[in-house]
Simulated scan of single mutants.
Amino acid sequence: MTVQQALEWAFRTECAQLELPEPPDPERDQGFGFGLEYVLMQRAALGCKIDGGRYKLGDYTHEDAEVIAATVAGMPDDLGGKRMAIRVAELARAGMTPDWMPGAVPRCVPVDMKRNRYGDRAVTVVVGNERVWSRGKWRTVEVRTCPVTYQPHPKQIEAARRGYCEWWKALFWLKKGLQVGEMLREVEVAEGMPKANPGTLI
């Protein structure tokens, strides 16, 4: 399966938990205990399945799913660290791909609209007064304008595309890590990846 399918299987089907490392606490940290990655490496070196002592079959999470979750938890800081690990896990659990806003083009639209019996009209505001010569005398008239905005905003589209690319880089790192680590017993991570540049799909 692809890395995205493997993540969805681990977090959605097997309900693997993302166990992120806690921030260091000098008072509590006395150098004892082992991280999940160390435990998983020891299991791999042992070469057999360990009975974890679970009393109920429904509580069992596949060992490969735990390896995948541990790999996600080890996301490096230059790829987003804990924040990206949580995002990857949440998207996988929901079976979703980040929304990169396909086909989104900023359009100039009125800030507000009002409806009357003649239909929808843009709301205008007074920005000043002018004196004009009309019908033989000077008259004061309001100068009105229609405030506009862009929807979706270019920065919103840019942020969505950037977020997708960051997620893609995280998945690429996970794919390589799971392939090179060779810690998965039954799951094999294939080469397939989501589109690298979603902008090409517009």
Rank of each mutant, 00 (worst) to 15 (best):
L7I: 04
V72E: 03
R139I: 15
G53I: 03
R117A: 15
P24Y: 12
W167R: 15
Y164D: 03
L20G: 10
G52Y: 07
L184G: 02
T2C: 00
G128Y: 09
P110V: 02
K155N: 10
L40V: 09
P23F: 00
E63K: 08
R117S: 13
A94N: 02
I86K: 01
P154M: 03
R121A: 03
R185K: 04
M75K: 10
H62A: 09
W138H: 15
F11Y: 13
E90K: 15
C146N: 00
K195D: 09
Y55C: 09
C108G: 04
P106V: 10
T140I: 14
G47C: 05
P198T: 10
I86E: 00
G58D: 15
I157P: 00
V143E: 11
R107G: 09
V111K: 15
V143I: 13
D120S: 06
P26F: 01
V132L: 10
K49S: 08
G53R: 08
T97M: 15
D112L: 14
F32E: 08
C165V: 06
M183K: 09
G177R: 06
R83M: 06
E191F: 14
V187N: 11
V67N: 00
T61I: 11
D59N: 00
V3L: 01
P106D: 01
W168L: 01
W173T: 02
G74Q: 05
V109T: 03
R144S: 10
V148W: 06
R12Q: 14
A104G: 13
A16W: 05
K114H: 14
P154F: 05
L7N: 05
P154N: 05
P26R: 01
F34Y: 12
D51A: 14
W133D: 09
E14Y: 04
F172N: 12
E130F: 13
E8C: 14
G128W: 09
H62E: 07
G53L: 01
K175L: 02
R12L: 10
K155L: 12
E188N: 06
G119H: 04
G181L: 02
V72D: 11
Y164E: 08
M96V: 12
T13Q: 10
T200N: 08
K155Q: 11
M1P: 11
G192D: 12
G199T: 04
G181Y: 08
L7K: 04
S134Y: 11
G53D: 11
R121P: 08
D25F: 00
G53K: 04
I157E: 06
E158M: 10
L40Q: 04
G80V: 06
E8G: 12
G33S: 02
V3D: 02
H62T: 03
K137R: 15
L7S: 08
G103Y: 08
E63V: 11
C15W: 08
Y118V: 10
P194K: 06
Q179K: 13
M75W: 02
W100R: 07
C146F: 03
L36C: 06
R131I: 15
A45Y: 03
